Computed example of a mutant assay.
Amino acid sequence: MSTGGQMIRVGVIEDHPLYRAAVARVLSEAEDIELAPVADSVPAFAAAREPAGCVVVLDLKLRGVTDSAAVQKVVGMGHKVLVVSAHAGQEEVLGAISAGARGYLSKDADGADILRAVREIAAGSTYVSPALASFLLNSTRGAKSILSERERQVLSLVAAGERDADIAEAMSISVRTVRSYLERIRDKTGRRRRPDLTRFAIEEGIT
């Protein structure tokens, strides 16, 4: 199967050498897939300057740029992300999807599952393995549910325009703790700038 007769360009970002080689082999043996850069980190993949539009099989737990920030970075390059991770809990799945991933598989997936997901995503669809789909179905506000109560409180104060010092005073915590909460919120949501966090809070009803 191919997308309109076109070969599907697929890259891989995975820091485990054996798994990286195995995924690259599965992809390269498929008749409708052309292997794009294979790298052990997001910066290494970025350095290859792959033109926008390929599907990228991405592990979440990488050195350097990791988790939702890794998804956001690769999506920002113009690629469609399929996360394949050994970490497949509700928080990881919802965080990756909210950061822009088009699909999510656990590393229990076999080669056929990866190829099926890649083809669906290349064709413009999304793909989440049935075992993980319940996380999305059970969460009407998936991204909101991955934040703790304290993180939602911090985010609501950010959306209200409060500075870090004001948030610390309002919550009776230190500025350092506020910034720690903010970093976790950024990692979970994939939003880095304060205006983007404010927009996210409004979209998710965290105000």
Score class of each variant (00 low, 15 high):
E91S: 08
A47R: 13
S85I: 04
E91C: 07
P51D: 07
R63C: 05
D113K: 06
V23C: 03
Y104S: 02
G95Y: 04
H87D: 10
S28P: 01
V118G: 00
K107W: 04
L27H: 00
L82Y: 01
L18I: 15
D108V: 12
Y127M: 00
G95D: 14
E91L: 11
A86Y: 10
L58M: 01
Y19W: 09
R63T: 14
G78W: 10
Y19K: 14
L18R: 14
V74G: 02
E34H: 15
V74Q: 04
V57W: 00
R49L: 08
V56K: 12
V57K: 01
E91Y: 07
G95F: 07
G89D: 15
K61A: 10
E120Y: 02
A112V: 14
I97D: 00
L58K: 09
E50A: 13
A133T: 08
A21V: 03
A133W: 06
G78V: 07
I33F: 07
S98W: 09
A88T: 04
R49E: 12
V56Q: 02
P43E: 14
S125M: 14
L94I: 09
G89Q: 12
V118W: 00
A99T: 06
K61T: 13
G64P: 11
E31A: 15
R119A: 05
A48K: 14
R63A: 14
A88L: 05
Y19G: 02
G53V: 05
A44I: 12
S106Y: 06
L18E: 11
A69V: 13
L27Q: 02
A46F: 00
A22T: 12
R102Q: 14
D113C: 13
S125P: 06
D32I: 00
Q90C: 10
L105M: 12
P51C: 07
N138K: 15
S28V: 05
A109N: 10
S134T: 11
V55L: 08
L105A: 02
G76S: 08
Q90P: 04
P43I: 03
K61L: 10
S125Q: 15
R20N: 06
D32V: 04
G76M: 13
E29Y: 10
A52V: 05
E92T: 06
K80N: 15
D110N: 15
Q90K: 13
A39T: 08
E29V: 13
G78N: 11
A131C: 06
A22H: 04
L62N: 03
A47T: 09
A131Q: 15
A70F: 08
S41Y: 04
A117Q: 00
R25C: 01
Q72S: 15
G100E: 07
V38C: 05
G53A: 06
F45A: 03
V42F: 03
H79K: 13
P130G: 03
E91M: 10
I97A: 07
V55T: 07
V55S: 02
A86R: 09
A86N: 11
A30L: 02
L62Q: 02
D110W: 12
A46S: 14
A123W: 08
L137A: 11
R102G: 07
R25I: 00
S134V: 12
L18M: 15
